[in-house]
Write a protein that binds this DNA or RNA. Structure first.
Length: 421
RNA sequence: GUGGGUGUAGCUCAGCUGGUAGAGCGCCAGGUUGUGAUCCUGGAUGUCGCGGGUUCAAGUCCCGUCACUCACCCCA
């Protein structure tokens, strides 16, 4: 036998029974969106590279060194999506959704890809739920979006998460603030890499985890202290709405996100159970994205939640979210004639909406009963030669161990009535 | 891209100063061709990550390499 193939570095398979938890997390995170009138959008897993380089920003790590970019057979530069917002905005612009009623409220879920060094909670292939509300710059919409994310986490039963909130300002105030910050950073004792980062994206330096850097940042100017009147009013209104919605948060004036398009309201949900990673979701408002992709100058707000990371958080809190899968009824045949009947019965039950299964391959009664036990079924139907000769089957309650003979003519209805929902 | 840790059965791991490969769980079968989750008995699965070196002898020591993993960085 040759070497077995392995999943590529930084990727993983989600297998039963864990996969049931994955589905539960994904569905729980999206349920509040569906209730809030968000429509589902599906966009390609890959886009023209320019969608991300223009949308996300050339200076970001995501674009500059983490994208899966390749030239396709037609000579086009193609990139596997490293996030969802740019692709959704591309579709929004391409299909002129802005010509209809605003805001356009959308959600999607699926795979995203970044070429990173993998570690706990960080993979090259990961799954996100992504949400956008585009076309209206209303603080109430910011609050709605944040609240919907929080609702998803709460619905999962998560307790140890925190909402970090700030405002990154906009074109009316961020350029001036940026100059202040650049001047401040220029006076610090920083290493080469950090100094370069201070020039490309000075805000990101505020987020540096190293104590020797943080120690120098105590007196750094903060965006929230230099907001223009309009962005300050916007941020105040967002906070009022969040309070009304019962969402609690922590002011995080040094919060910086990795994508360039964020303006005004910016937030991140963090959880401590993810090893070195902390963000389970994050997002914010983006003013320039639509225009950068050739659309009208419209603002939007959105967020992305990491499904895999949220699952890690769920597991870290020891939450039992996946109601066990398995079937309701399990049919145990003995002998060829019974086997044929079993296959037919299982088919009928499934058609009637009752989940059912039977054994395949040659298994003795003991092995078949063991399989019945493992299947999660509440009841087993035992079909043996002796029963068939008498025109009956044994319907066994696997929990109480009670067993009754049921005439074959009534079997289907009886099983359905006994285990059916 | 930089650093640390770990590679032994399907899984979790033990294996001392080198001396013929182990346990638990799981799986399969038997005890009972008519009954599972308990109990008893038996069985299968390993080029001990890979390559080289030292040695009479290497899972064990040395070198290299690959993989996984954690952390830096960055982020979901």
């Amino acid at each position: 036998m040759s070497e077995p193939m392995r999943a590529p570095k930084g990727t993983f398979d989600t297998l039963p029974p864990d996969s049931a938890q994955f589905l539960a997390v994904r569905d729980t995170l999206t349920a509040p969106l569906r209730r809030a009138g968000y429509g589902y959008i599906e966009t390609p897993t890959f886009e023209d590279t320019a969608v991300f380089s223009r949308g996300v920003g050339e200076s970001t790590d995501v674009v500059s060194k983490e994208m899966y970019t390749f030239t396709d057979r037609g000579g086009r530069s193609i990139t596997l999506r490293p996030e969802f917002t740019a692709g959704v905005m591309r579709a929004f612009v391409e299909h002129r959704l802005y010509a209809g009623a605003l805001p356009v409220k959308l959600w999607t879920a699926g795979s995203a890809f970044r070429y990173e060094r993998p570690q706990a909670g960080r993979y090259r292939h990961f799954t996100q739920v992504s949400v956008e509300a585009i076309g209206v710059d209303d603080p109430a919409l910011d609050a709605e979006v944040v609240a919907l994310a929080a609702q998803g986490f709460r619905d999962l039963g998560l307790r140890d998460f925190e909402l970090l909130l700030t405002s990154l300002g906009d074109a009316t105030c961020r350029p001036q603030y940026r100059e202040l910050l650049v001047d401040f950073l220029a006076k610090l004792d920083l290493d080469e890499d950090t100094r370069r980062r201070a020039e490309i994206n000075p805000l990101r330096v505020l987020d540096d985890k190293r104590p020797e850097v943080q120690a120098q940042l105590d007196d750094a100017p903060l965006m929230v202290d230099h907001l223009s009147d309009s962005t300050k009013a916007h941020y105040d209104a967002v906070r009022e709405h969040l309070t009304d919605l019962g969402v609690t948060w922590t002011e995080a004036p040094r919060l910086v996100r990795g994508l360039d398009y964020y303006t005004k309201t910016t937030f991140e949900f963090v959880h401590s159970g993810l090893g070195s990673q902390s963000a389970i979701g994050g997002g914010g408002r983006y003013d320039g994205l639509s225009a950068a992709l050739g659309g009208p100058d419209l603002s939007g707000i959105g967020y992305a939640v990491g499904v895999d990371r949220t699952l890690l958080a769920v597991q870290a809190e020891g939450l039992d979210i996946a109601t066990s899968a398995g079937v309701q009824a399990f049919v145990v045949p003995l002998g060829a004639e019974a086997k044929r009947l079993a296959v037919k019965l299982v088919g009928q039950l499934r058609e009637a909406g009752v989940s059912a299964d039977t054994v395949y391959g040659d298994r003795g009664l003991k092995g078949a009963m063991k399989a019945a036990d493992r299947s999660g079924a509440s009841h087993a139907v035992v079909l043996g030669d002796r029963d068939l000769a008498e025109g009956v089957a044994q319907l066994r309650d696997l929990r109480s161990h009670e067993q009754v003979a049921v005439p074959l003519g009534e079997l289907f209805e009886r099983v359905r009535a006994t285990v059916g929902a």
